[in-house]
Each structure stands twice: as structure tokens, then as C-alpha cells.
Amino acid sequence: MSGQRYAEDVNAGDELPVLVKNASRAQLFLFSAATNNPHRIHYDKDYAAVEGHPDVLVHGPLQGAWLSQYVTDWAGTGGRVRALSWQNRARAYPERDLSFKGKVVEKREEDGRAVVELEVWEEDDEGQVLMPGKATVELPGRG
């Protein structure tokens, strides 16, 4: 987390700083445990092959949780995430860098509040977009 972000410092076209995640197999296990998800494709490589996967997979919801973190941290503790959506389009694997990127699409004023629309996405280490998404964030003003 860095300091608070203010509406005055944000403009359409701005790029968000990149966040890189890299899940260990133990982390996948911990996420399965924290969400009570016993699906074997996340911890049993032999079984993952039965479902056609070359390795265990990073959970779609873990990638969603990272995206949520990415946007929430960008907004700062004084900002508010109003909406967040994402589509899991391709498989993500452990022990590989996964990069979260984004840009500001629009900034507008709504009932005296600054509202920012973001386009956000996750890429793998070959630049393939695994998960496109969008977010709507309210930011505080400096005033």
C-alpha cells in the first residue's frame, strides 16, 4: 500500500503501476483452505491431467482476489471501490509471474464525488491476457 490517491492527481489515460504475483503451490493450498474449496485441480497434478490441465491451476477466484487487491490498494484507504468485474478466460499456473495492469478510462463528477472508471487485466509471463476486468472507484479530493 502506498499513500492516499486523490482525484486531482488522476486523469483519463493514466496507467496504473504494475503488480506482479507469483503463487507457490503452498499458496494455492492455503487459498483452497481459506475458501473451503476441495477441487483437486488446485493441488493434485495427476488429477489435474484427468481434467486436461498440464499442471495444477491458480484458482479463478484467487486471481479475482488479486485484482480486487490491485484496485483497492490503488484507491487507497480513503477511496472506495464501487464495482469490480472480471472474466477468467485462460488458465493460470503457479510459479509463473502474473502481472496486473490497468489504465484510467474516465474521470467524472457524480453528486460532488470524483468517480473513476478503470480498465484492469491480468497477463501471464508471455503477455497473454488471462483475465480482463473493469472497476469503478470513488476517490477523495484534496480539498
Partner: peptide
Amino acid sequence: EDGLYKSAGRRVALNVKRVMFGGEDWEF
């Protein structure tokens, strides 16, 4: 066998083998 829990509640029966998570749209 695949590790998932058997369906609880009303089952959405489909003529398919697998169900994959495809994402979410949240409003807070």
C-alpha cells in the same frame, strides 16, 4: 471424485461434464 462437493440445494442439471469458474461482476 473430482474433489468438489456434491450439489447442495437445487441442482442445475445440464448435459455437461465439467463446470469452470468464469468470473464475477460485483457491486459494493
